[in-house]
């Protein structure tokens, strides 16, 4: 199957104004992602992972170079167009879940579909299916405050996936979770990646997450330091093998 190009980044530079001058957060990034990738940005704090995800998500615009997402040059999109791009094609998963606390699990997952003005029957079917993917159908009427951290993150995965986006951007999705929950949500995303062909791009420090990635891009000081494809990513890892795999690769690198 010929995989279509999802993200095309060329000579991307991002500067932030500070004081009289600029701080360069990203310098000369060139990267390509094709449909179905399960990739991650890794690197020390401040290396530019979040900045890069925001640019890909069309939440910010480049200082130089270009970011083309699903055929759209991000810097040329109007507010309305970039909102539509996010609304229909990109799902977001955050470190702090960011569910809307006043709404039920069901309402939170339904929200993106309301923005798309889908009809009630279609919404209901899609929401229940998405909750089923993450194993939370029975919690549909709960409020976020009544859920554990792992459950909240699964709700936010359902919210990102309910519209069946081509691309999901996940910024430190496991940072607030314990090992067991981290494995659970990554496995969930890996499964969706395989079953639906959704492209996932992570920003992470988490060794457990890295163990599942089929592509790891190391950023350092705003540059791509390495872009690797671990050879032996197990397609159906158990919790323990994922852990071992991470260890194995780390050792291999040394």
């Amino acid at each position: 199957m010929e995989n279509k190009q999802i993200i095309d980044i060329n000579n991307l530079v991002k500067r932030f104004p500070i004081g009289d001058g600029y701080f360069t957060a990203l310098q000369g990034i060139t990267l390509r992602f094709v449909a179905g990738e399960f990739a991650g940005l890794v690197g020390p704090s401040g290396s530019g992972k979040t900045t890069l995800l925001n640019l890909i998500g069309s939440l910010d615009s480049p200082s130089e170079g270009s970011v083309v997402v699903l055929g759209h040059e991000v810097s040329r999109l109007s507010h309305r167009e970039s909102a539509a791009l996010r609304n229909y094609h990109i799902g977001f998963i955050f470190q702090t879940y960011n569910l809307l606390p006043v709404f039920s699990v069901y309402d939170n997952v339904e929200f993106p579909l309301l923005l798309q003005k889908r009809d009630a029957v279609g919404r209901r079917k899609a929401v229940m299916e998405a909750l089923d993917w993450v194993g939370l159908s029975h919690k549909a009427q709960s409020r976020p405050a009544q859920l554990s951290g792992g459950e909240c993150q699964r709700v936010s995965i359902a919210r990102a996936m309910v519209k069946r986006p081509e691309l999901v951007l996940a910024d430190e999705p496991s940072a607030n979770l314990d090992a067991k929950n981290s494995h659970h949500i990554i496995q969930t995303m890996k499964r969706l990646n395989r079953e639906l062909g959704t492209t996932f791009l992570f920003a992470t420090h988490d060794e457990k997450v890295m163990g599942y990635l089929d592509r790891i891009i190391s950023l350092d000081d705003g540059r791509v330091a390495r872009d690797e494809r671990p050879l032996c990513v197990n397609e159906a890892q158990s919790d323990s093998t994922a852990e071992e795999n991470g260890h194995a690769r780390r050792q291999a690198r040394i």
Binding site: G57, R86, F94
Partner: peptide, 16 residues
């Protein structure tokens, strides 16, 4: 403002 941030990320328009 935090809530607005999430809603923007989910693809809601500012005017909306």
């Amino acid at each position: 403002y935090g809530e607005f941030g999430v809603r923007l990320a989910l693809g809601e328009e500012k005017s909306h």
